[in-house]
């Protein structure tokens, strides 16, 4: 596209205008511009969830992810939608104590499950130790990935404590240690585009009681 734009015409206006004319050009002649009515409603099902200790009886379209259920149905918007494909970790929550990508799970697959989101870890008055450590060590910039980072970080310390093996262990039959290398490897499913990684590692080391 040319950089030359007439005075008084914004680039945005030009782009919007071109999109509109393309849409008109592509519309088949005589076609009804209205969206046709649905033949039938998409399948919906009941699901019972306990979120942050509170029970919820919901009815959702079967396609609804756990992430969208939390954000759009329960208005728990602390959990973030980043990539929506399990690549960034912004949607990480704890389900029955295990961290998962809530974007890659359907709500209907979680009948009876206990979900903990960032809102359930701590409150502004009484922060979870990991939340306090992120504040202390400046473990974020824009903050968008932070709820997922914190949920993941809490789970990572539990996973090391439980002795789960990792890729950076020299001997996978040994008990892993709370080292910086272990924590970094285990946090690789949480992307921070601002690059606050070193401070996140400091915050985790602080909570684990080790040197970063």
């Amino acid at each position: 596209m040319s950089d030359f734009i007439e005075p008084g015409v914004s680039r945005r206006g030009v782009l919007a205008g071109s999109v509109a004319s393309v849409a008109i050009a592509n519309a088949p002649s005589g076609a009804n511009a209205q969206t046709p009515p649905r033949a039938s409603e998409p399948p919906a099902m009941p699901v019972n969830l306990t979120v942050n200790g509170k029970k919820h009886a919901l009815r959702v379209d079967t396609r609804t992810t756990l992430l969208d259920t939390l954000r759009e149905h329960l208005r728990l918007t602390g959990t973030k939608k980043g990539c929506d494909h399990g690549q960034c970790g912004a949607c990480t929550v704890l389900v029955n104590g295990q961290r998962i990508n809530s974007c890659l799970s359907l709500a209907v697959m979680h009948e009876g499950d206990e979900v903990t989101t960032i809102e359930g870890l701590g409150t502004p008055e009484k922060l979870h130790p990991m939340q306090a450590a992120f504040v202390k060590h400046d473990g974020y910039q824009c903050g968008y990935c932070t709820p997922g980072q914190i949920c993941s970080a809490v789970a990572v310390l539990d996973e090391i404590k439980a002795g789960q093996p990792s890729h950076v262990q020299a001997d996978v039959s040994a008990k892993p240690a709370f080292t910086a290398a272990e924590m970094r490897e285990r946090m690789s499913g949480n992307i921070c585009r601002c690059g606050a990684y070193s401070n996140i590692a400091d915050a985790m080391a602080d909570v684990a009681g080790v040197k970063a």
Partner: peptide, 19 residues
């Protein structure tokens, strides 16, 4: 069967391996 543990922990992320 350490080759199996090693292969699994070399793949995906902690969140994905839990599911």
């Amino acid at each position: 069967y350490a080759v199996l543990t090693r292969a699994i922990v070399a793949g995906a992320s902690g969140q994905l391996r839990n599911k």
